[in-house]
Deep mutational scan, measured.
Amino acid sequence: ATNIVSKVKWYNSTKNFGFIEQDNGGKDVFVHKSAVDAAGLHSLEEGQDVIFDLEEKQGKAYAVNLRIK
C-alpha cells in the first residue's frame, strides 16, 4: 500500500524505532530510524501526522518512504 496517512503512536529515538497507528484499525506499523533518516528527520513525535508506504518483509509490516503530512 502507498501514501497511507496516519499518526505516530510512539517513537523512541534512543532505541531507534517506533510504531505508527493504522487508521483502518489494522496492526501498528513498525518504523525504523533508517526510514526517519531517509525522510531527513531527526525523530518523530507522538501524534505526528505522517504519510508512508507499507512494505512487508518476512511477514512484518514496515513503514518506508516516510514523510510529514
Rank of each mutant, 00 (worst) to 15 (best):
residue 1 A to P: 10
residue 1 A to G: 12
residue 1 A to C: 13
residue 1 A to F: 12
residue 2 T to I: 13
residue 2 T to N: 11
residue 2 T to R: 14
residue 2 T to F: 13
residue 3 N to H: 09
residue 3 N to R: 08
residue 4 I to D: 04
residue 4 I to Y: 06
residue 4 I to F: 07
residue 5 V to G: 08
residue 5 V to H: 14
residue 5 V to E: 11
residue 5 V to Q: 12
residue 6 S to Y: 06
residue 6 S to H: 05
residue 6 S to N: 06
residue 6 S to I: 04
residue 6 S to M: 06
residue 7 K to N: 05
residue 7 K to L: 04
residue 7 K to S: 05
residue 7 K to C: 06
residue 7 K to M: 05
residue 8 V to Q: 02
residue 8 V to M: 03
residue 9 K to D: 00
residue 9 K to H: 07
residue 9 K to N: 02
residue 9 K to C: 04
residue 9 K to V: 05
residue 9 K to M: 03
residue 9 K to L: 07
residue 9 K to E: 01
residue 10 W to M: 04
residue 10 W to F: 09
residue 10 W to S: 03
residue 10 W to D: 01
residue 10 W to N: 01
residue 10 W to I: 03
residue 10 W to P: 00
residue 10 W to Q: 02
residue 11 Y to K: 00
residue 11 Y to C: 03
residue 11 Y to G: 01
residue 11 Y to T: 00
residue 11 Y to W: 10
residue 11 Y to S: 00
residue 11 Y to N: 02
residue 12 N to W: 08
residue 12 N to C: 12
residue 12 N to K: 09
residue 13 S to L: 10
residue 13 S to N: 11
residue 13 S to E: 11
residue 13 S to P: 14
residue 14 T to V: 13
residue 14 T to A: 13
residue 14 T to L: 13
residue 15 K to Y: 11
residue 15 K to N: 06
residue 15 K to P: 01
residue 15 K to H: 08
residue 15 K to T: 07
residue 15 K to Q: 08
residue 15 K to W: 11
residue 15 K to R: 12
residue 15 K to L: 15
residue 16 N to C: 12
residue 16 N to I: 02
residue 16 N to Y: 08
residue 16 N to P: 02
residue 17 F to E: 02
residue 17 F to H: 06
residue 17 F to L: 03
residue 17 F to Y: 15
residue 18 G to H: 01
residue 18 G to Y: 03
residue 18 G to R: 00
residue 18 G to Q: 00
residue 18 G to I: 03
residue 19 F to V: 04
residue 19 F to I: 04
residue 19 F to M: 05
residue 19 F to L: 04
residue 19 F to D: 01
residue 20 I to W: 00
residue 20 I to F: 09
residue 20 I to A: 02
residue 20 I to N: 01
residue 20 I to Q: 00
residue 20 I to R: 00
residue 21 E to M: 15
residue 21 E to L: 15
residue 21 E to A: 14
residue 22 Q to K: 12
residue 22 Q to T: 13
residue 22 Q to G: 15
residue 23 D to E: 14
residue 23 D to Q: 15
residue 23 D to Y: 15
residue 23 D to W: 15
residue 23 D to V: 15
residue 24 N to L: 10
residue 24 N to W: 11
residue 24 N to T: 10
residue 24 N to P: 10
residue 24 N to R: 11
residue 24 N to K: 12
residue 24 N to C: 11
residue 24 N to Q: 11
residue 25 G to Q: 09
residue 25 G to E: 08
residue 25 G to S: 09
residue 25 G to F: 09
residue 25 G to I: 08
residue 26 G to S: 10
residue 26 G to A: 11
residue 26 G to F: 10
residue 26 G to H: 10
residue 26 G to M: 12
residue 26 G to P: 07
residue 27 K to S: 10
residue 27 K to Q: 10
residue 27 K to T: 09
residue 27 K to P: 14
residue 27 K to M: 10
residue 27 K to D: 09
residue 28 D to C: 06
residue 28 D to A: 06
residue 28 D to R: 04
residue 28 D to S: 06
residue 28 D to P: 07
residue 29 V to Q: 01
residue 29 V to Y: 12
residue 29 V to G: 00
residue 29 V to W: 08
residue 30 F to G: 00
residue 30 F to S: 01
residue 30 F to H: 03
residue 30 F to I: 04
residue 30 F to L: 04
residue 31 V to I: 09
residue 31 V to R: 00
residue 31 V to Q: 00
residue 31 V to A: 00
residue 32 H to T: 05
residue 32 H to R: 04
residue 32 H to E: 04
residue 32 H to C: 07
residue 33 K to Y: 08
residue 33 K to V: 08
residue 33 K to T: 04
residue 33 K to C: 08
residue 33 K to W: 10
residue 33 K to P: 02
residue 33 K to N: 04
residue 34 S to Q: 10
residue 34 S to K: 10
residue 34 S to Y: 09
residue 36 V to W: 03
residue 36 V to S: 01
residue 36 V to P: 00
residue 36 V to A: 03
residue 36 V to D: 00
residue 36 V to C: 03
residue 36 V to T: 02
residue 36 V to M: 08
residue 36 V to Y: 02
residue 37 D to M: 15
residue 37 D to T: 14
residue 37 D to Q: 14
residue 38 A to R: 11
residue 38 A to K: 12
residue 38 A to S: 09
residue 38 A to W: 07
residue 38 A to C: 09
residue 39 A to R: 03
residue 39 A to C: 04
residue 39 A to N: 04
residue 39 A to H: 03
residue 39 A to P: 02
residue 40 G to T: 04
residue 40 G to M: 07
residue 41 L to W: 11
residue 41 L to S: 05
residue 41 L to M: 09
residue 41 L to F: 10
residue 41 L to K: 05
residue 41 L to Q: 06
residue 42 H to S: 13
residue 42 H to N: 12
residue 42 H to L: 13
residue 42 H to A: 13
residue 42 H to V: 13
residue 42 H to M: 12
residue 42 H to P: 12
residue 43 S to N: 12
residue 43 S to L: 11
residue 43 S to H: 13
residue 43 S to T: 14
residue 43 S to F: 13
residue 44 L to A: 00
residue 44 L to S: 00
residue 44 L to R: 02
residue 44 L to I: 08
residue 44 L to N: 00
residue 45 E to K: 14
residue 45 E to T: 13
residue 45 E to A: 12
residue 45 E to P: 07
residue 46 E to S: 15
residue 46 E to V: 14
residue 46 E to H: 14
residue 46 E to T: 15
residue 46 E to I: 13
residue 46 E to K: 15
residue 47 G to I: 02
residue 47 G to H: 07
residue 47 G to T: 03
residue 47 G to M: 05
residue 47 G to K: 06
residue 47 G to A: 06
residue 48 Q to P: 02
residue 48 Q to F: 07
residue 48 Q to D: 09
residue 48 Q to R: 05
residue 48 Q to N: 06
residue 49 D to L: 15
residue 49 D to R: 13
residue 49 D to T: 15
residue 49 D to S: 13
residue 49 D to K: 12
residue 50 V to D: 00
residue 50 V to E: 01
residue 50 V to L: 10
residue 51 I to A: 06
residue 51 I to P: 00
residue 51 I to S: 06
residue 52 F to M: 04
residue 52 F to V: 04
residue 52 F to S: 01
residue 53 D to W: 05
residue 53 D to H: 04
residue 53 D to C: 04
residue 53 D to Q: 05
residue 53 D to N: 06
residue 54 L to Y: 07
residue 54 L to N: 02
residue 54 L to K: 07
residue 54 L to P: 00
residue 54 L to Q: 04
residue 55 E to H: 11
residue 55 E to G: 06
residue 55 E to K: 11
residue 55 E to M: 14
residue 56 E to D: 08
residue 56 E to F: 15
residue 56 E to K: 12
residue 56 E to Y: 15
residue 56 E to T: 14
residue 56 E to A: 09
residue 56 E to N: 11
residue 56 E to I: 15
residue 57 K to V: 11
residue 57 K to I: 11
residue 57 K to R: 13
residue 57 K to M: 10
residue 57 K to A: 11
residue 58 Q to P: 06
residue 58 Q to L: 12
residue 58 Q to A: 13
residue 58 Q to W: 14
residue 58 Q to R: 12
residue 58 Q to C: 15
residue 59 G to R: 05
residue 59 G to P: 00
residue 59 G to V: 00
residue 59 G to W: 04
residue 60 K to M: 10
residue 60 K to Q: 09
residue 60 K to F: 11
residue 60 K to E: 06
residue 61 A to T: 14
residue 61 A to M: 14
residue 61 A to C: 13
residue 61 A to V: 14
residue 61 A to K: 14
residue 61 A to L: 14
residue 61 A to Q: 14
residue 62 Y to C: 08
residue 62 Y to H: 10
residue 63 A to W: 03
residue 63 A to R: 00
residue 63 A to N: 03
residue 63 A to K: 02
residue 63 A to T: 02
residue 63 A to E: 04
residue 64 V to E: 05
residue 64 V to K: 09
residue 64 V to H: 05
residue 64 V to Q: 05
residue 65 N to L: 02
residue 65 N to G: 03
residue 65 N to R: 08
residue 66 L to G: 00
residue 66 L to F: 00
residue 67 R to N: 05
residue 67 R to D: 04
residue 67 R to Y: 05
residue 67 R to W: 04
residue 67 R to L: 05
residue 68 I to M: 09
residue 68 I to Q: 07
residue 68 I to N: 06
residue 68 I to F: 10
residue 68 I to D: 06
residue 68 I to W: 07
residue 69 K to Y: 13
residue 69 K to G: 12
residue 69 K to S: 12
residue 69 K to A: 13
residue 69 K to D: 11
residue 69 K to T: 13
residue 69 K to W: 12
